[in-house]
Write a protein that binds this DNA or RNA. Sequence first.
RNA 1: GCCGAGAUGGUGGAAUUGGUAGACACGUCGGACUUAAAAUCCGAUUGCCUUUAAAAGCAGUGCGGGUUCGAGUCCCGCUCUCGGUACCA
Length: 879
Amino acid sequence: MRRQYPFHLIEPKWQGYWNSQETFRAFNPGEQPAEDHPFAIRHKNKEPEELEKYYILDMFPYPSGAGLHVGHPEGYTATDMLARYQRMKGKHVLHPMGWDAFGLPAEQYAIKTGQHPRQTTEENVTNFKRQIKSLGFSYDWSREVNTTEPGYFKWSQWIFLQLYNSWFNPVTNKAEPVDTMEFPDEIVSDEAKREYLDERRLAYVSNAPVNWCPELGTVLANEEVVDGKSEVGGHPVVRKPMRQWMLRITAFAQRLLDDLETIDWSDSLKEMQRNWIGRSEGAGVLFRVDGVDEEIEVFTTRPDTLFGATYMVLSPEHELVDALTSKDQLSAVIEYRDAASRKSDLERTELAKEKTGVFTGAYAVNPVNQEKVPIWIADYVLSTYGTGAIMAVPAHDERDLEFAQKFDLPVRVVVQAPEGEQSLGYTGAGESIESGFLNGLGTSEAKKRIVDWLEEKRKGKRTINFKLRDWLFSRQRYWGEPFPIIWRHGRHEALQESELPLLPPELDDYKPTVEGEPPLARAVDWVNLADGATRETNTMPQWAGSCWYYLRYLDAQNDEYFADKEAEKYWMNVDLYVGGAEHAVLHLLYARFWHKVMYDLGHVSTSEPFQKLVNQGIILGEDGQKMSKSRGNVVNPDVVLAEYGADAFRLYEMFMGPLEMMKPWSTQGVEGVYRFLGRVWRLYIDEGSYKDYEQAVTTDPGQAELMLSDLKLHSAVNDSEPTAEQLKILHAAIKKVTDDLDGMRFNTAISALMVFVNEASKWESRPRSVLSVFLELLNPFAPHLAEDLAARMSERPGNTLAYQPWPKYEESYLVEEAVEFPVQVNGKLRGHITITPDTSKEEIENLALKCEKIQKFISKKELKKIIVVPNRLVNIAVK
RNA sequence: GCCGAGAUGGUGGAAUUGGUAGACACGUCGGACUUAAAAUCCGAUUGCCUUUAAAAGCAGUGCGGGUUCGAGUCCCGCUCUCGGUACCA
């Protein structure tokens, strides 16, 4: 196919120019651009830090071996258009890119081939960078980060130490350094103090059961387990007690929930975070055990149904099970508990449709009516939520009802459902019945009364529970940050800050040891220190690096601190963050948590990292299916770029539809925008000279670049005064593109550019002043072509559009002299009248009534009223 | 099940606060240019119906109701699709 315009020469040329001129550098407080830098020329009388900043961030990619697919650049294109737009609007733009380069695939490749993950990672980064650069994004590459570089992960380790050396003070509701901790009077010995402190650190060691994935050979965080399978790869996960590092994210649950109100994220995304945090209000209620000197606390959100509690269920792992179980039930209980512990997560959730459980032989006493209720154990009660024990109210809880029916346990209705609904199995709010002093109360009032009563009798209290669990932070991997921790006499100790970064050892074999120890344990010399201490052999999860990378961009080369304080204060927080919805809970929750800790400790100045967040939609294959290698519908950007160029690619990515929407790729769609760029080219460039050029290039391809400068401007381009019509078309485009960019409606902004070109192509005289402004509008979208044409139009070539002031529209140019004004009868369009902007309301009514086409719809009918909507239409209502 | 988002021509989509439904683009059809093709340019393109034609009419934004002078947009009740989540007491 004939090339629409020489993008293959224009694009590398301008990418090279931007690169060599450092066009897109951002300047930290105290830094100065060179005098001839376009930034300095634009902002002559101001220091960079006096300018309004705009921090626009992409979720950095994991550089996989497969290279970029068309989904990656969707978000990057959107942010690049906005970055270029904001730069032209005069903002000081920070727009960086980097690599989330620790991770499983490089390590698995290492296990197979022995190639060091570092080498694999470097190769992949090189390829990703080449691909991203070929799209002409305006990143400040001087701030590039890579999570696997010691200069970076030094600070990931440092942040871990901040967590390790902090605790959550419930009084101040903040993270504080551990030395602010006060010990209770009974904690006296150093040993006791040490233990007390270790139990309260934000980074602590736990021996609780964890999600172990045998296939991946590592543990996983709760968030990484989906339906009992690993999120990555879909391998089975089992629960297994192991010594692991945990981060105390639960302490921040309320703040993570509350501060969602302060940020500009989509409702659906906030809702996902809320659901994950899972706050629920209710009561803890104490049940005495009959004949045993023990009490069991249950958590319930429906204390108003306490009179309907007919049995109690403990999770199989509950600590009191042994103490309660009667002799004759002992074997059944042990058997059930063993069976439950052997079940994988998958079996306990997905596959376990039928409820199971056994009676312990013990009875609890309902505090409200002294009734004895049987105590069962069943695995539908989770040990990890609430107290691991429930009071069962089968009449008003689906799960309890199912269980009660299966095991023939009593059911007592205590809530009267509203008219038309059955009370048995009713879980909504209603009127309390058969409930002593609660009778006749509505659910919310009954809740209040019963909790007051429980608190007074010291049999319970108001309680808030969260679904969120602490974050399991260690992995049994090689290719991750080693913990800056050593073990001495069974106790953990932090390395000194001066000992960072702690580098991973070199290994020949990246597999776990035969004893099942993590791969780092193979490095005997590294693990065993001279004084008998040993290093922690777990590594941090991939999230560690991605939790804070947006901070490192602020000052990527700093050796003294993760980022200069002034720079942090100036740039934070992120004004716009764009990325995939798959990180809605994992990355975004973890990053918010770390940021809050850093905020409390005084290292950052904002309580939230990402002010506005937008999720881009998924791009489907041409067949409307999800892109995948197995379907063979993956679109490779390299191929698209070779045929249509980066500008067409960028334009198409945004022209497809709204950013947040899922939408299918279409090669014909790319051709459409490519043709549009060709029309732009021909609007400016003399076709004869381009044909000559093409001919000359076929005979002497080596001279192509040189001959490019011989191209002539189109003969219609001149210095004439623009007509009113031309100004109207230009300013309508300015208005629409400006509004749409502000609202991130890229697709309609591009359509406005197309409308302009369609009009302008008809002009026999194309005023230079109008055509120059159009290139400014085009620049954020198709920067290579815009720069090139602007250089041809300008008397001072070599000047970039990047810092050109964004054009302003003039409302007065948009006013039409005479317009066709629609006339409706009873809401149906029946005709038009011609009016001018100063036609009065009365005149419009008159004209409408007199209009010939209208007459036949209103004559012989009774006129009810006439509605004139200014600038819109007139509607005549008749009967 | 629950929570969230959505459904508009042959296709992707537009209509920003209730005000001319289908912008822009793809595809298709027709024409110009060409020996021919490609490329480019011009025109048509929601359906139905009447007409030689011009020109009109009717229906129409997943389905059924409602509010309004006027509904793709607001309200009530459904259907389907997508995303999240699931014994969380």
